[in-house]
């Protein structure tokens, strides 16, 4: 039964990957990669139960956080072309 769940999530990962490859705009791709990351978290958790190794939950937890930070970092890079503090734009307090 865990195997069926894992297969379902894998099928959906294929769909997200198709959107990431097709995506007309760069934002489509980022969104698809973000959704792909969420599904990766889920599949790691399911695989942990499937193989009886609950340590996988820690990996899933870390992956969930990295996925979020990675999305924000890529968006920041696209917006400012720099991973550091944006010096070339005026302060926009409500930005990102």
């Amino acid at each position: 039964m865990f195997a069926a769940t894992a297969c379902g999530i894998l099928a959906c990962m294929v769909l997200a990957m198709a959107r990431a490859l097709m995506g007309p705009t760069v934002y489509d791709r980022i969104m698809a990669v973000n959704a792909f990351g969420t599904k990766t978290v889920l599949i790691i958790a399911v695989l942990g139960f499937m193989s009886g190794r609950p340590d996988f939950m820690d990996i899933a937890l870390v992956y969930a956080l990295i996925n979020f930070i990675g999305t924000i970092a890529v968006l920041k890079f696209i917006r400012y072309g720099d991973m550091g503090w944006p010096r070339n734009v005026p302060d926009e307090p409500d930005d990102l």
């Binding site: 609950p54 937890l61 979020f68 917006r79 990102l96």
Partner: peptide
């Protein structure tokens, strides 16, 4: 294990709206 799963769920539910908002804001301002 269940506590960790709950923690994953909470993190996902707190971060996903933030990521979505950042995405749509970046897309609209481009």
């Amino acid at each position: 294990v269940s506590a960790k799963l709950l923690l994953i769920l909470l993190f996902l539910w707190f971060t996903s709206p933030t990521a979505t908002h950042a995405l749509v804001k970046a897309a609209l301002s481009d």
